[in-house]
Simulated assay, not measured.
Amino acid sequence: MSRRPAFRSAAATLGLGAVGGLFAACARGPRNPYYSGPVSDHFDGTRFFNPDGAPPRGFRDLLRWRFGDKPDEWPATVPLQAQVRPAERVDDLTVTMVGHATMLIQTAGLNILTDPVWSDRASPVSFAGPKRVIAPGIAFDDLPPIDVVLLSHNHYDHLDLATLGRLKAAHDPRVITPLGNDTLIAGTGLRCETLDWGDQTTAAHLGVHCVPSHHWSARGVGDRSMALWGGFVLTGGAGPLLFIGDTGFDQGRPYSAIPDRFGPLRAALLPIGAYDPEWFLADQHQNPDEAVRGLMLSGAAYGIGHHWGAIQLTNESREAPFEALETAKQTHGMAPDRFRALRPGEAWAIPAV
């Protein structure tokens, strides 16, 4: 058993995978290397921001966290119960957990990956940074033909260039991502379409809508919040589905407009981990109770909890999000089978509504 330092875990994922992003609080370079576009209600001409929301905390708070409470100890490795070999195509709706925020959505004959990461570390280097403790729930070579990648933002635990390069060679999927991330992806040769919040496109006969989340972005020193973050709603086919990516609860605002715009959701894929210490992380990462409240606000019939149990980023224990989700469902009177925290290798054929 080994203890992973909080600084390394946080740093490698929350920004430069992290460190760079948090140091970037002090770096205010005038040039955006990723995106150039008009000022909007969430873009000031150089950086994106959360309207009326909270910016990510700075370096002083990072040090306070680093020298504060020690993170709970995670196991160095966790055995995978079984790697699954998904069906080649699914007509209705099945979601399979690969690990962290990587899920395979199979619906209406399309195969869609969210934030694909098959690398061992969420880091800009292969020899340091947060390391996965459990193998991917689907072996890369067992993937069905991948049509689309939904990429929510550019933190290293979500945008992994090595995995994207492998996907290009094996499947050549189309990537759909918020503004600015195409610049990072360009070197992979993948086809990439960028969307602003409120924009939409199509993937075969599905609608793909980019929706706001409350988060931030960074890959290195000085590029904080220069590429946009966001979630996606898939419409058509088996019913609307939300993948929110990373988000803070932000008084419920990432969820409150969803029902009026999209009607009743069949499912929502929501993060439940990387929330402790909450004084440092609550603005950008929701906890399981907030995820339950978000599911209720979104109007989704079913929920899948992700962003837990694969890579230690913050202080909570590996099982804490799973246990807290069970408690939150009881607190809010939610049926036990409505919101499930899937483990790598678990698949769920979402019930019809």
Score class of each variant (00 low, 15 high):
88 E>V: 15
6 A>Q: 00
92 D>L: 02
317 S>A: 11
167 L>G: 00
35 Y>E: 03
131 K>T: 03
170 A>Q: 08
5 P>W: 04
305 G>R: 06
250 D>E: 14
322 F>M: 12
31 R>H: 14
267 A>K: 03
252 G>T: 13
190 L>Q: 06
322 F>D: 07
64 R>A: 13
111 N>F: 00
191 R>P: 01
68 G>R: 08
185 I>F: 07
322 F>R: 12
136 P>S: 04
314 T>S: 10
296 M>Y: 03
262 F>C: 10
167 L>Q: 01
160 D>E: 15
239 G>I: 07
119 S>M: 13
303 G>F: 01
330 Q>M: 09
336 P>Y: 12
342 L>K: 13
196 D>R: 14
307 H>A: 14
218 A>S: 12
297 L>Q: 12
149 V>W: 00
79 P>E: 09
235 T>E: 14
4 R>E: 08
106 Q>F: 05
184 L>A: 13
229 W>Y: 06
130 P>A: 15
206 L>M: 08
144 P>K: 05
202 T>V: 12
261 R>G: 10
207 G>T: 10
78 V>P: 03
58 G>R: 12
328 A>I: 06
119 S>K: 12
131 K>N: 04
306 H>R: 03
137 G>S: 11
7 F>D: 06
165 G>D: 13
95 V>Q: 02
222 G>V: 08
316 E>M: 02
243 F>L: 10
330 Q>F: 03
34 Y>V: 01
291 A>V: 04
103 M>V: 14
275 Y>H: 11
72 D>M: 10
339 F>R: 07
291 A>D: 06
11 A>L: 07
252 G>R: 08
143 L>T: 08
315 N>R: 13
337 D>T: 15
289 D>M: 04
177 T>W: 08
43 F>R: 02
325 L>E: 00
234 L>D: 00
21 G>D: 02
134 I>Q: 14
329 K>R: 14
252 G>K: 07
241 L>P: 00
161 L>W: 01
17 G>F: 10
310 A>H: 09
137 G>T: 12
16 L>Q: 03
234 L>H: 00
179 L>K: 14
345 G>P: 11
205 H>S: 14
342 L>H: 02
136 P>E: 05
307 H>W: 09
116 P>V: 01
121 R>D: 11
187 G>H: 13
101 A>V: 02
315 N>T: 05
5 P>V: 07
89 R>Y: 02
158 H>S: 13
179 L>I: 10
303 G>N: 09
140 F>H: 07
197 W>M: 04
85 R>P: 05
165 G>T: 01
218 A>I: 06
110 L>Y: 10
316 E>K: 04
62 L>V: 09
110 L>V: 05
353 V>S: 11
93 L>W: 01
80 L>G: 03
236 G>N: 05
144 P>E: 02
132 R>E: 04
141 D>H: 15
236 G>M: 01
335 A>D: 11
313 L>P: 00
313 L>E: 01
283 D>W: 03
12 A>V: 02
293 R>T: 09
9 S>G: 15
247 T>K: 05
336 P>S: 09
353 V>H: 13
159 L>M: 15
301 A>L: 12
344 P>E: 03
68 G>M: 09
192 C>M: 08
33 P>Q: 02
198 G>S: 11
308 W>L: 05
277 P>Y: 06
217 S>A: 15
310 A>P: 03
